[in-house]
């Protein structure tokens, strides 16, 4: 049984003044096994963010199913959806989405506080994570006082602290320089090795080359996917770039 199953997913955006409809997702099908590290790539406007938002139950699909551990997301009531998200999903955003009003520590605690945990339990969970992410000394600082990479690490800590079934990341390296990106990707790799399932949207072939599998989306469908297998990051990276060039040229993949 897969951890995540996406079946015939379709999303049509209706523009506000009726008329034009945008079909962001046409018919998306794929599955994610527990412990997998999957990257999603595709051109700008191909529907990656749309897909991720639906997976995160932030948006509703027009048709199709998303099943997370035998639970149909469309079956969850509006009320329960936030709790569901809090308990099962972790997010890492391109823009970090840390809150100015909280210190990094409190930002990381946020989902746990909402879940009603006590300070002691939270602290117990935070310490090892902060240690691993190397942000222990920064915990008392506010977001505007730390660098972008540090912010993103805090955001990762916030995603990890709830012990989610799956981490959804939308271009997590998009706002980082290459050094910070490398660090973050290394971190994702480590976390994944420890059994954490990760689904990451990215534009960067380099980021994708860290994943175990890459899905390519085009025209609202999963166009192609490649597995890393036993290859090294470098070889996988080459494969990905080759696929991308074919993809943009619009030819067929052998």
């Amino acid at each position: 049984m897969s951890l995540l199953e996406v079946k015939n997913l379709k999303k049509v955006y209706k523009t506000r003044f009726g008329g034009q409809e945008v079909e962001a997702l046409k018919d998306v099908n794929f599955t994610v096994e527990s412990g997998e590290y999957v990257a999603i790539m595709g051109e700008s406007g191909s529907g990656k963010t749309t897909l991720l938002n639906i997976l995160a139950a932030l948006d509703k699909a027009t048709a199709g199913k998303v099943i997370l551990q035998n639970m149909d997301l469309s079956g969850i009531s509006d009320k329960a959806v936030a709790t569901f998200r809090r308990d099962n999903l972790g997010f890492v955003f391109q823009e970090f989405n840390l809150l100015d009003t909280f210190t990094l520590e409190d930002n990381i605690y946020l989902p746990l506080v909402l879940a009603g945990n006590s300070y002691k339990t939270m602290k117990g969970k935070l310490d090892p994570i902060a240690d691993k992410l190397g942000i222990t000394s920064l915990l008392k600082k506010y977001p505007y006082e730390v660098s972008g990479g540090q912010k993103q690490r805090a955001a990762v800590a916030r995603a990890l602290i709830t012990d989610p079934k799956i981490i959804l990341a939308d271009e997590p390296t998009g706002a980082l320089d290459s050094k910070s990106s490398d660090e973050l990707l290394k971190l994702f790799g480590e976390v994944n090795e420890m059994g954490q399932t990760i689904l990451m949207v990215t534009h960067s072939a380099k980021a994708a080359s860290c994943a175990g599998r890459v899905l390519f989306i085009k025209d609202g469908e999963v166009y192609h996917q490649i597995y890393r297998g036993d290859t090294t990051n470098e070889l996988f990276y080459q494969k990905i770039t080759e696929t991308l060039t074919v993809l943009t040229r619009g030819g067929n993949i052998a």
Partner: peptide, 12 residues
């Protein structure tokens, strides 16, 4: 801010 918090799991 509340937008972010809802993404992290804050309910109405």
């Amino acid at each position: 801010r509340f937008g972010v918090m809802r993404k992290v799991g804050m309910t109405g």
